[in-house]
Amino acid sequence: MFDYNFHWRPVIKSLPELLEAGLVTLQVAALSMVIGIVIGLGLALARLHLRGPLRWLATAWVEIARNTPALFQLFFFGFGMGAWGIHLSPFLIVLAGLSFNNAGYLAENFRGGFQAVPETQLRAARSLGMTVWQAYTRIVIPQVFRIVYYPLTNQMVWAVLMSSLGMLVGFRELSGETQFFASRTYRIFEYFAVTAIIYYVIVKIILGASRLAAWRLFRY
């Protein structure tokens, strides 16, 4: 037992590249969150207020995103789109897959948030002379934001963890980069152990930052 010689030197040597790839992971996760929030808001409002095919489409999006594996969604944007002759770059595959997934999960959170704000609030704002846009942006959305803040943070963590699937479609984010180095040096365990630590630190930084931001945002 344990007659294996650990070689950490190659990992240390490529640490700068790994940290840079960690930044790529953060970027793609953050970008997919921004897209996910915008689409998720649209999906939630469509499910709450619309009738007909648009509502049906929104429901289908949400249910497919939530009831199939994230890897399946990534594959779909990867080689599924090939059926129509669309070939996305690895970066776009990961971004599209993550955004699709985020939008589906966030839409449900937003829907719950909108339902938690009493309708009388909107009516009160309207009777004070606010336009619908003003009532939403100044009265309803700030309250919804408070409710969905923690789910949003969680989803961001999920996005970072999910982005590791990029490894399977050839995207060189943290996991993909790690696999690239690991297969070049055969120090698979050492590389992935360091990468696990980097992921752990990234997740802790996100959670810490969000707690700090919450403390500043929700003081009153």
Binding site: S164, S175, I188, F189, T195, A196, Y199, Y200
Partner: peptide, 10 residues
């Protein structure tokens, strides 16, 4: 806090 895929490979 660590992606499942990394846990599996590790």
């Amino acid at each position: 806090s660590v992606p499942l895929i990394i846990q599996l490979v590790l």
